[in-house]
């Protein structure tokens, strides 16, 4: 499947953003004490990980 150039660029932008989000959530999770906040962050880590994997698959397919 061939993607349009601007789509790939858009996905790259989002991937960079999500990478920062995932890094922040992973590291800052260790610094919070409230269990509920920890739980939200844990779920965010899981979702972001899956989303980044999806981006990786798109980007590697877009690479020629």
């Amino acid at each position: 499947m061939d993607y349009a150039l601007h789509e790939v660029l858009e996905v790259q932008e989002l991937a960079a953003f999500k990478t920062v989000c995932l890094t922040k959530s992973k590291t800052m999770k260790g610094l919070v004490s409230d269990p509920k906040l920890k739980d939200i962050m844990q779920r965010d880590v899981e979702t972001s990980t899956r989303q980044l994997q999806e981006f990786t698959s798109i980007l590697s397919k877009a690479k020629h």
Partner: peptide, 17 residues
Amino acid sequence: GVRNYAMAVTEAGTPEI
């Protein structure tokens, strides 16, 4: 995140993306 995604969704044409 929501705003970034909303921007990107309206730029995507390929159904998969």
